[in-house]
Nucleic acid binder design. Structure first.
Lengths: 229, 229
DNA sequence: CCACCATGTGAACCGCGATTCACCATGAGC
DNA sequence: GCTCATGGTGAATCGCGGTTCACATGGTGG
């Protein structure tokens, strides 16, 4: 960035860029910085640079850094929820709306997307953030949970799952997936546990069991069939 | 300096034993501050006040704040592990070493202790901490996991659980318990879900299911003990 | 009795990163 | 053309909290 005094027009063509879009550029820049360096690396300076604006410009559009990130997190979390909801719909599509599958599908999508964008997932799940932003996180965790609670209740009503405290199971599921992901997702994860695919399928197994669903196919304990370790 | 509520921090014996080195007082003070205000509230100033020493004294005994907390976390986490191990031993004690119970017992203790000291649990589980301290946390998470992995493998070998990826199940269990606790444990939790006892028993159910253990009672488990809190 | 070391003191220092502010462009309306 | 209003700039400011340092103090050995 050349620091010519008074040369405001040179960094980015001003007219080409809609005035309203600086705000959007900041939002996009913030998201992109978080995706790359996590919330910890998302200083005001870094965001400004990424957006191609000056430090202070941020404050023309947002009351504070935290406010900016509240919007970013809302946006990103919203996408996650949408994707999870879409996955649930998808299940009914192929003609056989297995109620257990409707519980597992969004979890699978959640995990899959997290693995695809680990730094972002880390920021969304566990990274230290502003108190204000943290509330958004909590808010969305609740949303995830509520989504699952509904699906679990449906499955129980349909007789596909044993009666249970759906709220607790939902929380446990979110936690199980979250924890199993936090390892691989956090900085410098060892690939000790194997590929992402094996992680995903293993996770699906644990989740299925946690809901109390009978093992695939026969409703009997798989006794003595091959063991893997 | 008057930032701390005077009464609370005084729990630490101030001048009982001079010889009981200042170092120990600092460690105790640090732990006590974390227990009360979390790591976030554990500034050097707060700790010094709680220990009844000056700001700089801390640096006569520890290279940095982080080093102090490495020791504190090691200590606290060690207690947790000890308690969990003891719980496992306890199971064998009454003559009936149910392998599934040996998996659930430490989880139960973990949850129970967390609920008893929520702020501390929060700090241990999820609160943002120094990188150095974070490594200790990771180290102990792994310890928890390894403990469970061993017990799970035993149970599988004994035929009490279906074959499974023990490492993944262990991570999921820790995560499930953690998440289910983080809600109640984090600032301003609503008691919406009921009492701690119901939480604990529900948690036990989910965990049992997640391991793939057959539902309570029906099968061949030695006795029909009606309830066990 | 004095030098000395260990330990304690707390005000000053410092780096970091969010926030502010005095000052410019530019476009719209008069 | 002149004047606001809007949006942009980036160096200065500020608050926070960890760390340092010049200065006690008190017990010990020479």
């Amino acid at each position: 960035m050349s620091a010519l005094p008074g040369g405001a027009a040179e960094a980015v063509p001003l007219r080409a860029v809609d005035v309203a879009s600086t705000r959007d550029r900041l939002l996009a820049a913030a998201r992109s910085v978080v995706e790359e360096h996590g919330y910890g690396g998302a200083s005001v300076a870094a965001i400004s640079v990424a957006a191609g604006v000056a430090n202070g410009t941020l404050y023309r559009h947002f009351g504070s850094k935290a406010e900016l990130f509240v919007e970013v997190f809302r946006d990103v979390c919203g996408r996650e929820v949408d994707a999870m909801r879409a996955a649930v719909e998808q299940v009914g599509q192929d003609g056989r709306p297995d109620p257990v599958e409707r519980v597992l599908a969004p979890l699978d999508v959640f995990a899959r997307r997290a693995l695809q964008n680990r730094t972002l997932a880390w920021a969304l799940l566990a990274e230290p953030v502003d108190a204000l932003v943290d509330e958004v996180r909590l808010e969305y965790r609740r949303t995830y949970r509520d989504l699952l609670v509904g699906l679990l209740a449906d499955a129980v009503d349909a007789g596909a799952l044993p009666p249970q405290d759906a709220g607790l199971t939902a929380a446990a599921l979110v936690g199980a997936v979250g924890e199993a992901l936090v390892g691989p997702v956090s900085p410098r994860a060892e690939p000790a546990s194997g590929t992402d695919d094996s992680l995903l399928s293993g996770l699906r197994d644990v989740c299925r069991r946690a809901t109390g669903a009978p093992p695939r196919g026969p409703d009997r304990l798989p006794q003595g069939d091959g063991d893997r370790r």
